[in-house]
């Protein structure tokens, strides 16, 4: 776990990339997490909806 955290969040120097440029990257990370998750969630909802609609038209035949 520690190694994983090091790989993702710690550069060779002591400063994490999140801290650079007056910590503005943390805002970008937050935006990415929020909108990235919502887009993925909506994509799967849409896929599920398509499947259910296909099933309805199949059953109504």
């Amino acid at each position: 776990m520690t190694t994983l955290l090091h790989t993702f969040f710690l550069l060779q120097e002591e400063k994490s990339w999140l801290m650079q440029s007056d910590k503005v990257y943390s805002v970008l990370a937050v935006l990415l997490i929020v909108f990235g998750t919502l887009i993925v969630y909506l994509y799967f909802t849409n896929r599920k909806l398509k499947k259910v609609e296909e099933k309805i038209s199949e059953l109504e035949k």
Binding site: L10, S16, L18, S26, I33, V34, Y41
Partner: peptide, 26 residues
């Protein structure tokens, strides 16, 4: 539940650069 998870995840990122700024990532 989804929005609580998002709130927690974004809080973790924010806490890393504020309350945990002087700490080691490990």
């Amino acid at each position: 539940a989804l929005f609580i998870s998002l709130g927690l995840a974004t809080g973790i990122i924010w806490q890393r650069v504020t309350w945990g700024a002087d700490m080691h990532s490990g």
